[in-house]
Amino acid sequence: MANNETERVHCLIIGSGPAGYTAAIYAARANIKPVLYQGIQPGGQLTITTEVENYPGYADGIQGPEMMIDFEKQAKRMGADIRYGLATKVDFSGPVHKVWIDEEKLIEADSVIIATGASAKWLNIESEQRLNGYGVSACAVCDGFFFRNKEVAIVGAGDTACEEASYLSKLATNVHMIVRKDENGMRASKVMQDRVKNTPNIKIYWNSETIEVLGETRVEGVKIKNNKNSEEQTIPISAFFVAIGHQPNSDIFKDWIDMDEAGYIKTVPGSTKTNIKGVFAAGDVQDKTYRQAVTAAGSGCMAALDAERYLGESGLN
């Protein structure tokens, strides 16, 4: 691409979930003039959820996408420069941190806050990839609508899987929930487990693995195998939803930033500092334990304060 525009910024924030926007609110108030790039999914993972019941301050609950609009509005009101665009490459070798946006624009930043979050994991079987968009989906809230009054399956055992199963149960005739472990091994919180177990049209298949999603041009069934007795069965379905967890969006940083084997960015305990001076990480990209909107927001605040202190100490503000 011909466009070789370069821009110098004081504080660059990459990502637009609760961590990114909270960092933007604090950084704007600290007058370090944050520029935030929203990435491929403005608003982050919460834009593909339904009701958020556990974010303090919203006494009556709120829809995830609406909450993220509120976050964005507040960041803008504080004066943060919010832009859309995806960080595609970085170079953290020098004191000034280089970040390319959409492979065409170069940002040179004194400080960087990485808040790129996490995205849905896939099973990585051939039939799942082939039928993606033809009944295979990782977003029940986006695509459940297409399968009203049909039979659907969901694989996963965490809170997200339970939330999506319960959302789908209102649309689909039956929801077949495929869980790898037994009843005692389910990862989801008690309240979500109970919700799923008490929904009459959700049928749970314990100790079950997905062998193959069936169908030529669209999903027609799923073959599963009981991992205790090796029995196989085929369930006729029109849609197959995947909710088996998340992986951090940290790929573009891996040559520079220390991570664990799963790709979560390592931060200095009690701070958001990474191994690179002036580069901070907040939210799900560095948190494999809590992964909540409110903890992401909390670490976003920490990152802005850490960045402000860094700029002050380095005489860059």
Binding site: Q41, G85, L86, D102, G133, Y134, S137, D143, F145, A239
Partner: peptide, 28 residues
């Protein structure tokens, strides 16, 4: 066109689907 995900992006040429992508995608 068998759309069962939103958004779905398709590129048509001479009446044929030459490319298809379910879900979000980046600009480049």
């Amino acid at each position: 066109y068998n759309v069962s995900a939103v958004p779905t992006f398709m590129i048509f040429k001479n009446g044929n689907v030459v490319w298809r992508h379910p879900g979000m995608i980046d600009k480049s």
